[in-house]
Design a protein around this nucleic acid. Structure first.
Length: 607
DNA sequence: ATTAGGG
DNA sequence: CCCTAAT
């Protein structure tokens, strides 16, 4: 019945089979989480129908799991009848984490206890859905009411009709009860009396703790002996008045209040689903105090559940968050950081990687599935230290020949399609984009080419900032006084080649087309950039390369001229498309120009 | 929104 | 690269 779900996707987070995920089922004492059973994730509709979870939902589950760094979680709450999984602040430990008994979360607080988990599971009915983990106590409604706030994208609440609830029969609990002396069967009875439902858990220890918690309405299970009188816990052990004061237990046993206890969310919940509760609840946590903010609702809510987060809690939380933000998809790490999980369940983050290689982390607060994204800057994000490609370039001066070869090869091949292809892939797999992109960039960097031939003063000025390829949005104070952001991204050879290819295919002037089709992967190159670059190329191609040596040597090494083959090609295209700058046309170099022109002019047609 | 051209 | 003007 209880199910712990582990949704596991491939590394890219995609499910091989949409709609399915692995679910580990485990009863009380954590069975083997290693025994994956494939269940179909379903959503319980309001009318009780079970409908297959949509991909989105499945993903949602998965995402949460992944984001929480734990892929295991309980998909328990399905709807109203089913209790809330998380309630009060003790949630960090109470939440659905799954934690196998052996699960160790060393760092975990004492509250985390498999027993409880199982208890929760136990409470959960047989049905489960992709509703996420998120649910919070509803503050209103007094008694064991709670609300669930399934975090579905659509924001619809899941409901289930499968849960049967019965009220606890406290009357059966009277006199002194020493849990230690009870048999399993008796414990079962006591359990039922306490929680109003059956249990099949065989674990005595678990039962005892569970009951103790229920009776004391706390997580304290130190006491195992209780005295019940008139439906009231007189107490024994450490509980006592203090507990009553804290919890709602003794207040009104008849109504079933007692039921709440550590697991308030039991079956009795009326099923109000309020996503906003999540919000407020969350806020409370963050703010660390709801006393003022919450109104009447709060009153009903037992004080105990509103415990103020401790400093440490907050710290840990933020720590986790930051980790989360910075991290890449971490490989599945089981049973770690269970404690913080609950808090993390409140949010999930989605990462998008821009084509610039910038990582944009958006935090998607699960406001009841409203799916509101709150972009935020990753705190830890740090771009890689800039590579010193200048050094690399130093090697190139004399390697023109080699470069030319590469160029030819590239030109010959269809450097075009590949790019698009890769690009497409990149879009579909955002997570990896960054890495891949960086890789590409680095590769390109080897061919760093200079923007223009003539070496404009501007170019020089810009090139300076090695920050070209960096993701820093550098704001360059214009000499004229303007203060604008300027990314000067040096054109890489591959980009130039693509541009040339593009022009040859679509024609000069169709910049937007070229941009779309050939530069999809280079988001930072706008059609205008392409146009400008082409203009420069044109100029360059017809410009003289008199004593190339002189210029080259004189110019810094970083100014790697554009390989002749490319210029040649540019020239062809220019002539083909009658873009030949009149003045420059005549000044072309005899050798390269003549041969190239005469020969290619006519062939241009096939281009 | 896209182009072309000047700065 | 940015900006503007003209489409």
């Amino acid at each position: 019945m209880e199910t712990e779900v582990e949704v596991e996707g491939n590394d890219e987070g995609k499910f091989e089979e949409p709609g399915f995920g692995k679910i580990y089922s485990s009863l009380s004492s954590a069975k083997q989480l290693t025994d994956p059973v494939v269940y179909k994730l379903v959503r319980v509709e309001g009318d009780g129908r079970l409908v297959p979870a949509t991909d989105d939902e499945v993903m949602e589950v998965k995402d949460l799991l992944v984001d929480e760094k734990s892929e295991v979680c309980t998909v328990a709450d399905v709807g109203q009848p089913i209790g809330c999984i998380s309630n009060d602040r003790s949630s960090p430990g109470m939440l659905p984490q799954l934690e196998s008994s052996e699960g160790l979360s060393p760092s975990e607080n004492t509250e985390v206890d498999p027993d409880k988990l199982n208890a929760r599971l136990e409470e959960t009915g047989p049905s489960f859905a992709p509703s996420l983990i998120q649910s919070h106590m509803h503050q209103s409604g007094g008694v064991g009411e709670c609300s669930n706030a399934p975090v579905l994208t659509e924001g619809r609440a899941l409901t289930s009709t499968t849960v049967t609830t019965s009220k606890p029969d406290f009357s059966k609990l009277n006199g002194e009860i020493c849990l230690d002396n009870l048999s399993i069967k008796e414990l079962h009875e006591t359990f039922k009396a306490t929680f109003g439902r059956e249990t099949t858990v065989k674990d005595k220890q678990w039962l005892k703790r569970r009951i103790a918690m229920g009776l004391t309405n706390s997580c304290d299970v130190s006491a195992t002996t209780f005295i019940i009188k008139d439906n009231k816990l007189v107490n024994k052990g450490k509980e006592d008045g203090s507990d009553n004061g804290d919890g709602a237990l003794a207040n009104d046993p008849a109504t079933g209040t007692t039921m709440s206890g550590g697991q308030q969310g039991l079956p009795i919940s009326h099923g109000s689903q309020l996503e906003d509760q999540v919000v407020s609840d969350k806020r409370n946590r963050n703010i660390g105090d709801n006393s003022g903010s919450e109104d009447h609702h709060t009153e009903q809510r037992a004080a105990k559940r509103v415990r103020k987060p401790t400093k440490r809690y907050i710290e840990e939380l933020s720590e986790v968050e930051s980790k989360e933000a910075s991290g890449k998809l971490r490989p599945i790490v089981k049973n770690s950081l269970l404690g913080q999980m609950s808090s993390n369940f409140h949010t999930r983050s989605a990462r998008n990687v821009s084509l610039e290689g910038r990582t944009v982390v958006t935090r998607l607060d699960s406001l009841g599935g409203s799916g509101i994204q709150i972009p935020c800057v990753s705190r830890v994000r740090r771009s890689r230290p800039r590579k010193n490609f200048m050094a690399l370039l130093k090697f190139n001066p004399s390697s023109m020949g080699v470069t030319a070869e590469l160029v030819k090869k590239a030109l010959g091949a269809h450097s075009f399609l590949p790019d698009n292809y890769e690009n497409e892939r990149a879009q579909s797999a955002p997570v990896q984009v960054q890495h891949r992109f960086l890789g590409v960039a680095d590769e390109d960097r080897q061919f760093l080419s200079t923007g223009a031939v003539g070496g404009h003063h501007k170019v020089l000025k810009q090139v300076d900032s090695s920050g070209d390829s960096d993701d820093n949005v550098v704001t360059v104070p214009t000499s004229k006084g303007g203060i604008r952001r300027k990314h000067h991204r040096a054109w890489t050879l591959s980009e130039v080649m693509k541009l040339v290819e593009g022009v040859s295919r679509y024609g000069a002037g169709r910049w937007s087309e070229i941009k779309r089709l050939a530069f999809a992967s280079y988001s930072y190159r706008t059609s205008v950039d392409l146009k400008d670059k082409w203009r420069n190329l044109l100029k360059a191609s017809f410009a003289q390369i008199p004593s190339d040596k002189g210029i080259n040597s004189r110019k810094n090494a970083a100014t790697m001229p554009i390989p002749e083959p490319i210029l040649l090609r540019v020239r062809e295209l220019a002539e083909t498309q009658s873009q030949v700058p009149p003045n420059l046309s005549s000044s072309k170099v005899p050798g390269t120009g003549s041969s190239g022109n005469s020969v290619h002019e006519k062939q241009s047609g096939y281009l």
